[in-house]
Design a protein around this nucleic acid. Structure first.
Lengths: 112, 112
DNA sequence: CCTCCCTGTCAGACTTTTGTGACACGGGGT
DNA sequence: ACCCCGTGTCACAAAAGTCTGACAGGGAGG
């Protein structure tokens, strides 16, 4: 998962997931230590519903993984963990990624 | 401007500026060749006002530079050009950037 | 004159994202 | 019983981002 050549859409998703102060902080906190949600909410001083939302985005982007650990007594705690990754962000990578983008794009028409 | 260690806010701005299919395409097109706005709009098949907005964001993030060239006859054309950059995007960079983020954050209280 | 090409900016509609409070549930201690 | 802790979802308001059409201007050329 290191030098993965990201497809355009993947790159956009990744960047969108990271383009947020909250999510950056969450990632940093989770990269340092495996914690559970409520504890993380306290640590970062944010409402749990909000934290949930951001965690969902990070999880959807594959940047963190959640694991719901149910203790023998039945009480459950959700641990969150960061997933290592590395992407070189430069013009070359972008130019490459821009070639395979779905959605609204120049229909690859022939020049005049 | 290459291996710049981005501050938290700068990183967020950079990522936010790149997290868009349109802007990725714009950057890719402009990195390949220096073009003027209207031509670029045709090339990417998007309305000029829209292109203008995206260009502003890219320019604000320092990813492109615009140069309004006024010909001797008085007609002016705005050329746009990509600005080279490189950022290593990984957990380490993020953890580092997350330390110096302005705005809503844990007031850096001394915990246990 | 009219038409074409270029640069800008504007208001408004629209969609997505962000953030909040309230609510549901279960378990453990006292 | 009550209170504290945990997970998870909901509706809703607020803010930010996206996109469009119309408009201003200047210049070139038929």
């Amino acid at each position: 998962m290191s030098g993965t050549p990201p497809t355009g859409d993947e790159l956009v998703s990744l960047l969108a997931a990271l383009a947020s102060p909250h999510r950056l902080r969450i990632l940093a906190a989770v990269a340092r230590q495996r914690t559970y949600v409520s504890e993380l909410a306290r640590q970062l001083q944010m409402n749990r519903p909000l934290l949930y939302m951001h965690l969902q985005k990070l999880e959807a982007a594959g940047l963190v993984t959640g694991e719901l650990v149910t203790a023998p007594d039945g009480s459950s705690v959700k641990y969150v963990q960061a997933v290592p990754f590395a992407v070189a962000l430069d013009l070359e990578t972008i130019a490459l990624a821009a070639r395979n983008l779905t959605g609204p794009g120049p229909g690859a028409e022939q020049e005049k």
